[in-house]
């Protein structure tokens, strides 16, 4: 039983470390910011989640005390990661992208984060894309 738990904790630690490494490596490899946003989500969910599961298992079996702090950390990270990504993407769209040229058209009402473009601009962009 103890050996089984030791193997479980070790596997969880190794998997979480590998996912953290892959997340940071993906942030170097990806070509632009919108794709780079995608890589660290692996580190957030599986990397930190695996480390927290390993910690819960270790402390409840070997130290004999079940703690729920870890669940609090992972819940906080799961709640805040999408907000962070949304803020980064929104700031990127406003700073570096042109609303007519670089962003795909989104139906008849457009993107809610931009002001509505003038009708002539929309017609020009449609001609250019299709």
């Amino acid at each position: 039983m103890t050996l089984f738990v030791e193997i479980l904790v070790s596997v969880l630690i190794v998997v979480s470390a590998l996912f953290l490494l892959v997340g940071s490596w993906g942030m170097i490899r990806m070509p632009d910011l919108m794709t780079r946003l995608h890589a660290p989500t692996k580190a957030t969910t599986l990397g930190v989640g695996g480390a927290l599961l390993a910690s819960i298992t270790y402390f409840s079996v070997f130290e004999g005390q079940f703690t729920a702090h870890e669940l609090l950390i992972s819940m906080f990270l799961f709640l805040t990661a999408p907000i962070t990504a949304q803020f980064l993407a929104k700031a990127h769209m406003h700073r570096n992208l042109d609303p007519v040229r670089d962003v795909p058209r989104a139906g008849e009402h457009g993107w809610s984060t931009y002001e509505a473009p003038a009708p002539s601009e929309v017609a020009d962009a449609g001609d250019r894309h299709h």
Binding site: S16, L20, M27, T44, G47, V48, L52, L77
Partner: peptide, 11 residues
């Protein structure tokens, strides 16, 4: 991303 890595390191 660095903050996330440091959280895992502390754990």
């Amino acid at each position: 991303t660095m903050v996330i890595n440091v959280i895992a390191l502390i754990i």
